[in-house]
Write a protein that binds this DNA or RNA. Structure first.
Lengths: 186, 186
DNA sequence: TCGCGCATGTAACAGGTTACATGATTGG
DNA sequence: CCAATCATGTAACCTGTTACATGCGCGA
C-alpha cells in the first residue's frame, strides 16, 4: 500500500483524532507547512481515495451546528501510517531558490553577490523568528513528541543557516578571499 | 519576463559558456541537483522556449564529430539572468520526508521513533560525505565563487543536521525528557 | 561487432496549485 | 445586515518525472 505524499500528511494528522478536510488544512498550515504543504485541491480528493481504500472512515458527527465531515483512521489506516513511519527509504528534497542564486552569484559583481547572501540570511532569520514567535506558542498545548521535535529542528536549522550566511558575508566583505566575481556592470 | 524554474538553472549554466542540453543535465546532476534538479523532459522543451523568447541562441558548432546542439546566452538572456539574480523575492521550500516522519513520531513507540531519527541522521551524514568526497573534487577546477559557496553550504547544512539528530537521539535515549510516545505495539 | 555512453527528443502520466463556485454561520 | 470565516468541493492549468524512441561514435 503505497501512500501518496498527501496521504501521508492526512493520515498522520488523523492519528491525533478525527478531523475535517478544513481542519487538516488549517493544522498543516501552521505546523508542517514549511517542509510539507498541502492544498484543498489535494486534501479533499485524497480523503475520498483513502476512504475508498478503507484507510479512513467517517467519524460520527457529535459537533456544533456547522456542516462538517470529520474523518477518522480505521485499523488499516493506523497500520498503514505506522508501516510508512517505520519504513526506511525516505526522500529529502530541498528546493532553495536562494541557494541557486548563490550558485550563480559569481556572475554578479561583488556588491550584488553580497545582496544575494544578505537576502538569504534575512529570510532564514525571519523564518526562525516566525517559528519561535508565531508557531511555538501554538505547539505549547501539544503533548506528543513529534511536533515539538520538528519545530525545534526548524528553528535550529534556520538559525544555523542565518549564521552561515553571516559568516560568509564577513568573508566576502573583508575581501580577503580570492573568489572570482563578474566585473561591475557599466 | 518571468523565468520558469527550469529556465533559471538553464540560463545560469549557460552563463559560464555555451552548452548542450545534455551537458546542462550532466552539470546539474553533479552540482545543483541537491537543491535544484532538472530532467531532460524539462530541459529540452525549455531550451526551445528560451530560444523562441530570444534569451538564448545557437552557438556555432566548432566541435567534434558528434551531433550536438550547443546554446549560448544572448544579451537579453544575460540581462534576464542578472535581473532574476538581483530580484528580491525568492522562495525557500524544503520538502523533507524524514522531518514529516519526525513530526508524527509520537505515534510510534520510543524505539521506533529513535529509528526515524537514526535514519535521518544517517541520510544527512551520507549526503555530507558524498558532497565532500564525490562533488568537491569536481568543483576544484571551477574558479567562480558560486559553486564553491553553494557546496560549502551543502556540506555545512548536512553536518549540522546530522549533529542535531545526534543530540536529539542522546536526549531520547537517556529518556530524561518527558516526551510522549505511543505504547509499544503488542 | 557489440555494448555502452553520448545525444536529442517526445508522450503519457502523476502531482500539485490556483481560482472559482457554493453556501452556512457568526460576530459586530 | 454585512463581512469574515467556516466549510466543501471542482476544473483548469502548470510542472515535472518516467519511460520510451531513435541513432551515432567509440573502445574492447
Amino acid at each position: 500500500m503505497e501512500l501518496s505524499a498527501t496521504a501521508r500528511v492526512v493520515l498522520g494528522m488523523l492519528a491525533a483524532g478525527p478531523k475535517s478536510g478544513y481542519e487538516i488544512k488549517a493544522i498543516v498550515d501552521r505546523s508542517t507547512r514549511f517542509f510539507w504543504a498541502a492544498s484543498y485541491g489535494q486534501i479533499y480528493p485524497e480523503l475520498r481515495r483513502l476512504a475508498a481504500a478503507g484507510l479512513i472512515a467517517e467519524a460520527e458527527a457529535a459537533d456544533g451546528p456547522r456542516r462538517r465531515r470529520r474523518h477518522r483512521l480505521t485499523a488499516r489506516g493506523r497500520h498503514a501510517l505506522a508501516s510508512w513511519l517505520r519504513d526506511a527509504d525516505e526522500l529529502h528534497e530541498l528546493r532553495d531558490e536562494a541557494l541557486l542564486k548563490l550558485f550563480f552569484a559569481g556572475h554578479l559583481d561583488r556588491a550584488d553577490a553580497i545582496g544575494v547572501l544578505e537576502r538569504k540570511r534575512t529570510a532564514h532569520a525571519d523564518a526562525a523568528r516566525h517559528l519561535r514567535e508565531e508557531i511555538e506558542p501554538l505547539a505549547a498545548s501539544v503533548e506528543r513528541y513529534g511536533p515539538h521535535a520538528a519545530l525545534r529542528f526548524g528553528v535550529a536549522f534556520n538559525e544555523f543557516a542565518a549564521e552561515w550566511c553571516e559568516r560568509e558575508l564577513a568573508e566576502l566583505r573583508n575581501g580577503r578571499s580570492n573568489a572570482a566575481f563578474a566585473a561591475k556592470e557599466g
